[in-house]
């Protein structure tokens, strides 16, 4: 498969896993690498740059990775995780400023369809558009 992989970074493992469940509901019968790096080792709230870099490497099949994050340390830890990666993998990983839940769903749909990394990242960034249009 020549798919882009996704990584979900959150302070909360249940939050990240539920977001992935919601996104996978859009992909019945389709495969997609979505890795989760969320929470502290002991099940608490927090982020771990080493775990995030491992998730980035695991999600990468050579076609690039788009990373969705919640806030604060999730962003700082994801940036730190980039520094821990090998140069060739790092070049393929993109941190999305898109919203975690809506961005993940949009990204997952196009990634499962075989879109390239920049197309997947663009979809993640547009995640809020349907809701904003509806409520405008």
């Amino acid at each position: 498969m020549s798919q882009v992989g996704l990584v979900v970074v959150s302070h909360s493992r249940p939050l990240a896993e539920a977001a992935v469940t919601l996104a996978r509901q859009m992909l019945p019968g389709r495969e997609l690498a979505i890795e989760v790096a969320a929470g502290t080792e002991d099940g608490g709230l927090g982020t771990d740059a080493v775990a995030i870099s491992a998730a980035m490497a695991a999600a990468d099949s050579g076609n690039g990775v788009v990373v969705l994050m919640d806030l604060g340390s999730a962003v700082l830890s994801a940036e730190t995780a980039l520094e821990l990666l090998d140069d060739d993998v790092r070049e393929r990983v993109l941190l999305s400023p898109g919203p975690l839940v809506e961005g993940l769903i949009g990204a997952a749909v196009v990634a499962a369809g075989g879109a390239d990394r920049d197309r997947v990242a663009a979809e993640a960034l547009l995640g809020l558009a349907p809701k904003q249009a509806h409520l405008a």
Partner: peptide
Amino acid sequence: KVGGASGP
């Protein structure tokens, strides 16, 4: 291991 923003 820190978990929060003070980790990175």
